[in-house]
């Protein structure tokens, strides 16, 4: 499919789901990887899968809202690889799922911090180490382009990611760094399945649960995808030539956004 050998890619939230599929897809094309998430056991599994492709894997346990932890991890990453060619800001999630009238202000704020501030923080911390001609891929969401209900923090945070990508594209083109949004649409992840963190449902079971129809808050014409489909799109985006699209959105959704 193409060649990323000699490139260094960081995937945030890479322990499971879309992040893990993306990390493995990039490693499969030859990139050396850095992966962070909050869970060491998941990082160990990803590192093993990445190393099985012959690529190096640098890992760290990081809460993306913790500025000191992000800076420490990035310093270690730069120490290890000396630069980043591909940054995938994937870490995210919907924590507050109440209507605004009942929302918990702390959960609302934390949802914005994980999805939006985390994306900013990794970008800000690594920008001077991202190679000219590099790529930044922000995992956004259709929910950032269209309002729903009971997820206003996530809607607002992803809308922020969306416009952040555009702002950054305007600032970074002189360095030939291309930055685009990736909209996955519904994907069979533990986050999507609203799992309790103590009991994560396997991908195959989530796919089986939604094989006939997506959950009720999606239109019937959406399809719940395997995370590998998103990893494949992220790889395609990472493989665009220098001077490829920037400030754009690449979506696997099946509803107009």
């Amino acid at each position: 499919m193409g060649n990323l050998s000699g490139k260094v890619a960081l995937v945030t939230g890479g322990g499971r789901g879309i992040g893990r599929s993306t990390a493995i897809a990039l490693a499969g094309a030859g990139a050396d990887l850095a992966v962070c998430s909050r869970t060491q056991a998941e990082l160990d599994e990803v590192a093993e899968q990445v190393k099985a492709t012959g690529s190096d894997c640098f890992t760290g346990v990081v809460d993306v809202t913790d500025r000191a932890a992000v800076e420490r991890f990035c310093a270690g990453l730069v120490d290890h690889y000396s630069r980043v060619d591909i940054l995938v800001n994937n870490a995210g999630g919907g924590l507050e799922r109440a209507v605004v009238a009942e929302a918990d202000p702390d959960l609302w704020r934390r949802t914005v911090e994980v999805n939006l501030f985390g994306t900013f923080l990794f970008t800000r911390t690594l920008l001077e180490h991202i190679s000219d001609g590099g790529k930044i891929i922000n995992v956004s969401s259709g929910m950032g382009l269209k309002a729903g209900m009971q997820a206003s923090a996530y809607n607002v945070a992803k809308a922020g990611v969306h416009i952040f990508t555009e702002c950054l594209a305007n600032e970074l083109w002189p360095r030939r760094i291309d930055i685009n949004n990736l909209v996955p649409g519904p994907v069979a992840t533990s986050t999507f399945n609203r799992d309790d963190p103590s009991a994560r449902t396997p991908t195959a079971d989530i796919l089986a649960r939604f094989a006939e129809a997506p959950p009720a808050h999606f239109p019937e014409f959406e399809r719940v995808k395997h995370p590998d489909e998103v990893g494949k799109l992220a790889l395609w985006m990472a493989l665009r030539p220098e001077g490829g699209p920037t400030g754009q959105t690449f979506s696997l959704a099946r509803r107009p956004l």
Partner: peptide, 16 residues
Amino acid sequence: AGGPTGQSFSLARRPF
């Protein structure tokens, strides 16, 4: 089949 539909794929280098 079942891929993206109703979407836009752009090679532009300016946000729209």
